[in-house]
Nucleic acid binder design. Sequence first.
DNA 1: CTGAAAGCGCTTACAG
DNA 2: CTGAAAGCGCTTACAG
Lengths: 345, 345
Amino acid sequence: MKRKATINDVAKAAGVSKGLVSFALNDRPGVSAENRDRIRDIAQALDYRPSVSARSLSTRTSYALGLVIARDPEILGADPFFPSFIAGVERVFLHEGRALVLSVVGDEQHEATVYRTLAADARVDGVFLTDLRHDDPRIPLLHELGMPAVTLGRPEGGAGSEPRPFPVVTLDDTPGIVAVTQHLIDLGHRRIAHVIGPHRMLHASRRNAAFAQTLAAAGLPADLVVETDFTAEQGASATGRLLDLADRPTAIVYGNDPMAIAGIGLAHERGLRLPDDLSITGFDDSELARYVYPALTSVRTDPLRWGEAAARVLLQLVAEGSAADVDLEPARVVTRASTGPAPRA
Amino acid sequence: MKRKATINDVAKAAGVSKGLVSFALNDRPGVSAENRDRIRDIAQALDYRPSVSARSLSTRTSYALGLVIARDPEILGADPFFPSFIAGVERVFLHEGRALVLSVVGDEQHEATVYRTLAADARVDGVFLTDLRHDDPRIPLLHELGMPAVTLGRPEGGAGSEPRPFPVVTLDDTPGIVAVTQHLIDLGHRRIAHVIGPHRMLHASRRNAAFAQTLAAAGLPADLVVETDFTAEQGASATGRLLDLADRPTAIVYGNDPMAIAGIGLAHERGLRLPDDLSITGFDDSELARYVYPALTSVRTDPLRWGEAAARVLLQLVAEGSAADVDLEPARVVTRASTGPAPRA
DNA sequence: CTGAAAGCGCTTACAG
DNA sequence: CTGAAAGCGCTTACAG
């Protein structure tokens, strides 16, 4: 590794103090235009880049942001949401000289330890909070740690009790789940099931409430709800249980695409024709949705854009101490071949 | 954020110099057992954790390792390999106090810039090199930057030309591809196609060579090879082209599971029965493989374990300046319902 | 507008 | 075995 130019090298070459170099390069007032330009030219010529660790030590800033994901490592790969979300975050960070520190913890027990370590080591200046839960323990924890955060979706009421709310980046999934449910009702389905993610996650119960309301508005019961952990495995077994019912559903709404694809697999396994005997819908509209058979009707949420927006908000929060909430375009249905008219009874 | 205890606080509380605290906590010789224990107790009582940035500045070490992925962000989520690999890396880092700095760059053009920035900013102490390519430009680049690295799989010969080779963690995929091809031959297939990843990637051409040899040993031609970018989209279109052939294949070997699943989708779309009319195999044995219909025969590569092993090797390389290569258990076939006897001609 | 100096919190020769 | 001090490369009041 060839020796890097330091601020001292630049200062010497420019015949000024290193303090002035720092001011010039950081766009702070109090440097003559002439000196500023000259210092910048010299810095560029020397290929000078400030040392992140030295800056960090001085400014008590790490120039890195964190994402802690609490899902079983084995199954993280199954759900395309996070990779796409991360890609969106990266797109913004790349231009801002920020790094993403990623942590995958198997379960929610070790989660607190990771956040505490991240804070104690000052590894990151702020974090992304995904998969919000009811009474989410991370919110008081992060407040206690004084760690800035942005949440994906709005956390529970809190009634203004918490010190200062975190900025929120929402992508309203309600219109999507309402539309996909209504789409099935319009196709004549009367027995519609919902295979959802973990109840403790806000989005799962929020979506299920929207699902139930839409059914209720049509005078239909929402009694077929199965909770899963978002894995294809549980998606398949939930499907099996639903299809075993005497009064089995003619349509199933799934909480993510992998579970829906596993549902398609199981239905085929049992000799059902799709969508003639059973309609199926997914969530997130992953790449594969288009290419399974029958092509999967899904709800598009755009995790990539969500990542970009969240990154910008978090960066602003860290830099300025506050940031406005952002509302992204709501989720919407993408209709494909996996949904069709209800079978005649 | 409550003020953290610093080394000075510990030194004062213990009535010793901070140098001695540093020695005691870093397990260096020259500290009396008595003092060492006392200092450690006090450090623990004060909940002292050394500042990463201060250490970094002193030791010129970042205590972070990097992974740069050059794939289109839009499609990164489709392939479960990386999330699982990352989860494996994390499992090791968590206990070692290391952080993973992840970078997703859309294309290979910007790749060099990212590595240079990572090196110039001393963001990471070393990197993981995945998806090795022919004449891989990253290898000379990393040597130039003096950046330690571990490669997944063995890079091309090099004939001992490079300064010092990087340690390698291999998971030999040849036995897997040979076995899956032989499996199809044994089932009576004579027209077997291969839908592979980008030719410039070593594993794609290495696997294709193994594929061709296995066919050749059985007196069969390996003329049906289609190159893709690993996306489900190209997996589907490659399948379409193969099925359009007059002398179309009765079996298709795919380079990853998403492409194979898309292949299943397209075959069904065209009214083919699987495996009666067409046998299909995937690669990596992702979670979904088990749950599609028909369940996908695949080649298991265990990205999670690969990540763990690579993390350990990289950590050792950074700490000690060298590390031995590691050979993981080779890939092997997992036979499921998507492969069956060749249709009678 | 500019310079000299202190300080961030560690590690590490150097003396004793 | 232990202490005092320099140094890592920045930023930031403080003087002028």
